[in-house]
Write a protein that binds this DNA or RNA. Structure first.
Lengths: 329, 329
DNA sequence: TTGTAGGCGTTATCAG
DNA sequence: CTGATAACGCCTACAA
């Protein structure tokens, strides 16, 4: 069934059918009715592909993530997909595995298929070379970057205010009487580095002498969390509280501390990040930074919508947060 | 840049360019070379949309899931996306939220956009009405159903052998000396019901009197797990081991049991299901049924590939599993 | 208000 | 082996 079949059966031309299909105003009421009847009778839906050939794009948006299996990313992808669908867009999922070359490959394919825009969940790309390559090659499609920052005319970013999150942690811990606070960075991403440098900066503002020595790095996840605890203890660095870059890493850390006979929160206070499901699956329940996932997702899609509508938009949006206090502090 | 521009620059006709683009054999070597040079020079990629207009489909596959935030589904979606991409297909993500009407809506849209096939992760649909509607409306696209069963000419299913999984649990627990084994069903899905009835059947085969009374139901997740423990105890039903339909539910159950001063595995043995990340984030580490997620995903895509290639395929594939024994039993 | 004709970028058919 | 030319299904001037 195509537009010609409908036109023939309704006794009108294809232009008229097209007008009805696209809710144009210049159609006489009874003509419209006549066409609509046929449309409904056959449950007709126009071919997106043929439409796309004219508009040079499909109603799709690419979602790039490093790995949808990471709960935090899945959460975001869910929100994005839901919001996009409300607007009539389908979401194309891409897992880059953290490899820039995969990302480039995906973006190339996405462009070829005529996506309306591309949303990056987190730091899919991390170096200037790729950034520039993006700028030069794909300037005709808007990119929304969540929690990361890239610079080009067609790039817009929605960021969680990491520094504010770190400040909340430090203030909360200070209130609880903690002086020796460590930070564990578990990702070399933009936001990971951001949090770490905020920690150093804010610690020093609060009078900590050599804050950089209170920063430890590890890999994200329970294993990384366990492993870094051993290294911290080995280092001889004193501590009564540890802030982790992600809940899972924090949980791994808690496990290891537990094995080493530390009591949480009596001997050590622990704060996680992202307010994931896991943070209430562990014992004790984890105090964590709410990353405003829902809000960032909704705003990202809204931003894309505005950009596509050609309206004036702000290029960088920053979103504040709160600390969710539970039993680990 | 389109095929005409390339043709002009290479000094050939668009037909020849098309032939080169599609690796047809009937092109003289030097002609091919000439065209390829221009192609590379401009980094040319043909429009998928225009291609789609001819082939009436795009290189996309719809992935329908209830909720990508469920770790088990995210895991599956990741595998599917990866395998599909290897084959040159983009994955369109759809979260139905468990509502059949959403599912219908998504499928309608997907058809309109010309997907090559649709893969359902789990029981997205659950009643005969919708099943029939599917059959009638969308018979021109193959559906791959994972861990659920629907009947129509264009439906193929890849199933984890639930009954075998339950058998492994019962045998393992029997070996550990357990007689009073309960099963907690945490989903009214096809596979959920499947496991539950397998439990009853196998228990009775093993000489349990009123196995049905040893089946409890709750909602999936930690909260459901906690809640069902209270009901079990209230019921007065004796037990020394509990098998849960999902890890998260099992973890909730363990938490509650812990609060009630039960020792795991000394007083109660616990088995989860799906071998999720969470199963090694809890204390004690959870014994769980490996659901062969990876295998099922790979095979599902392979099956779709074969169907699309028009080859002979088996309509129902069943996959066996193993029990991962950890500290909770 | 309605209809006709051309174009969107490919692939496929059929001559040459 | 290569090149016209006609689809594919829709949208959009432009004409009536």
């Amino acid at each position: 069934m195509n537009i010609y079949d409908i036109a023939k059966e309704a006794g009108v031309s294809i232009s008229t059918v097209s007008r009805v299909l696209n809710n144009k105003t210049n159609v006489r009421a009874d003509t419209r009715k006549k066409v609509e009847l046929v449309l409904e009778k056959h449950n007709y839906a126009p071919s997106s592909i043929a439409r796309g050939l004219v508009s040079k794009s499909l109603d799709t948006v690419g979602i790039l993530t490093i790995d949808i299996r990471v709960p935090h990313y899945a959460e975001t992808a869910y929100i994005l997909e839901r919001e996009l669908y409300k607007l009539g867009y389908n979401a194309i999922l891409c897992n880059t595995g953290g490899k820039p070359e995969n990302g480039i490959d995906y973006i190339t394919t996405l462009m070829q298929t005529g996506v309306r825009g591309i949303i990056l969940i987190g730091s899919v790309f991390q170096n200037k070379y790729i950034e520039t390559s993006l700028i030069n090659s794909f300037s005709n499609v808007p990119f929304i970057v969540m929690n990361s920052q890239l610079h080009a005319d067609n790039i817009y970013s929605v960021m969680f205010n990491q520094e504010r999150g770190v400040a909340l942690c430090l203030d909360h811990l200070a209130e609880k009487g903690h002086r020796d606070i460590l930070y564990v960075q578990d990702a070399e991403t933009f936001s990971g580095a951001n949090k770490a440098s905020a920690f150093i900066k804010l610690s020093e503002e609060r009078g900590v002498a050599d804050a950089a020595s209170r920063l430890f790095k590890t890999s994200r996840g329970a294993v990384g969390g366990r492993e870094v605890i051993d290294r911290i203890i080995e280092s001889g660095q004193s501590f009564t509280a540890i802030v982790f870059g992600d809940d899972l890493t924090a949980i791994g850390g808690m496990q290891r501390l537990h094995e080493l006979r530390f009591k949480i929160p009596d001997n050590v206070a622990i704060i996680g990040w992202n307010n994931t499901k896991s943070s209430t699956l562990c014992v004790p329940y984890l105090t964590t930074v709410d990353n405003q996932n829902e809000m960032i997702g909704v705003i990202s899609v809204k931003l894309l919508e505005n950009v596509l509508a050609g309206g004036k938009v702000s290029r960088n949006i920053s979103i504040d947060s709160s600390l969710i206090v539970r039993d680990s502090t």
